[in-house]
């Protein structure tokens, strides 16, 4: 007998509907964004407790939501900002709204994702959409954030264990890494924007405890301690968050994975349009690799973070243009959720 071919190994890759690619990417982005928003709310709560009275205002600022927030609120108090970012269905950047967006992308992907993925997303997003004012009282908020983080990670785990590894999973992973990269820059920026109490300067106890909180909220505190021991200088913490090759939420890690996923679209699935996007990501990686943290801080940390965010936005735009271009006759109305209108922030 001659050798037999494995039918699974020899099957040619199936084409992937553009809409599925788009929904895969955005499902990942929205889930990652929900997790990060929970992290940011959690850490801000700690900042404010430690005396950074402007902490809640800073969240509004770094999300560039001032205009919409102050349209309906006169002051950035804790309960108002938390309500705005957790349960306000009128705010597209609230967890409730993100949950709806994640849910609708997941529903569109039901033909593709595993039953386990859908079932967990179904229950979780319904839970988020059902949150009420009593669920976000000061006594509840930290627990709620913990639960949200955990459910998001459950989603991540189920996805890792059950999502079939074809094109759709590459788009999904690209979306997660893109969002994670964006979010780490926002997390660093929130510390930058948060004013220290007058009495406390850079390197003070409050300053250090705030940097510690940033590390904790990114789940990096203990790893940082292990590697950097007692060095809690801001530049070291920023360096860790931006450039640690081993820390899974660092910018450099997210960009490496993003690069890898998009490169595989080109190499494994012969999507030639991925080439230009790969180059853009390489340019972005070089912008990070070619400067030391000291240089980045000296030249302006905020400006650098801002630049990264804009680059990431361009990557998203390029991906959309390459893989789900609008239909040629542009008369079709934009579908609110699954069209081109899913937004960066």
């Amino acid at each position: 007998m001659s050798m037999s071919l494995d039918p699974v190994a020899t099957v040619s890759p199936h084409p992937l509907l553009s809409r599925y690619a788009e929904c895969s990417m955005w499902l990942a982005r929205y889930m990652e964004r929900i997790e990060n928003l929970a992290r940011i709310i959690d850490v801000t709560e700690i900042f404010v407790r430690s005396g950074a009275s402007d902490g809640w205002r800073a969240i509004v600022q770094i999300n560039a939501d001032e205009e919409r927030f102050y349209a309906s609120h006169s002051k950035a108090t804790a309960d108002r900002v938390i309500a705005f970012y957790v349960i306000d269905a009128g705010n597209p950047t609230s967890i409730t709204s993100l949950a709806l967006a994640a849910r609708e992308n997941a529903r569109a992907l039901r033909p593709l994702i595993s039953t386990e993925m859908w079932s967990q997303l179904n229950i979780f997003t319904q839970f988020l959409r059902g949150l009420r004012a009593e669920d976000i009282r000061p006594s509840e908020i930290s627990q709620l954030c913990a639960r949200i983080k955990q459910e998001c990670q459950t989603h991540t785990g189920i996805t890792e264990g059950t999502f079939y590894r074809d094109q759709a999973s590459l788009f999904y992973n690209a979306g997660r890494q893109l969002e994670r990269a964006d979010q780490i820059t926002r997390l660093i920026d929130i510390k930058y924007h948060t004013l220290l109490p007058v009495a406390a300067g850079v390197g003070s106890e409050v300053d250090i405890s705030q940097w510690t909180s940033v590390l904790r909220s990114a789940a990096g505190y203990h790893a940082y301690r292990r590697v950097m021991a007692g060095d809690l200088r801001p530049s070291s913490v920023v360096g860790f968050l931006l450039k640690s090759e081993a820390f899974p939420r660092s910018l450099v890690c997210s960009l490496r994975h993003l690069h890898n996923n998009v490169s595989r679209l080109r190499s494994d699935y012969r999507l030639r349009d991925a080439g230009g996007i790969v180059e853009r990501i390489e340019f972005l990686r070089a912008g990070l690799d070619d400067q030391t943290v000291g240089q980045i801080i000296t030249r302006g940390l905020h400006e650098f973070l801002d630049w990264v965010q804009r680059q990431l936005q361009d990557v998203q735009t390029d991906v959309a243009q390459a893989f789900w271009p609008p239909p040629r006759p542009v008369s079709a109305p934009a579908i609110e959720i699954s069209g081109q209108t899913q937004s960066q922030s």
Binding site: P15, L16, Y269, R270, P327
Partner: peptide, 13 residues
């Protein structure tokens, strides 16, 4: 989408 009376689906490729 239809082109020359043939039906196509939009894919990433």
């Amino acid at each position: 989408t239809i082109e020359n009376d043939k039906v196509y689906m939009r894919t990433t490729a």
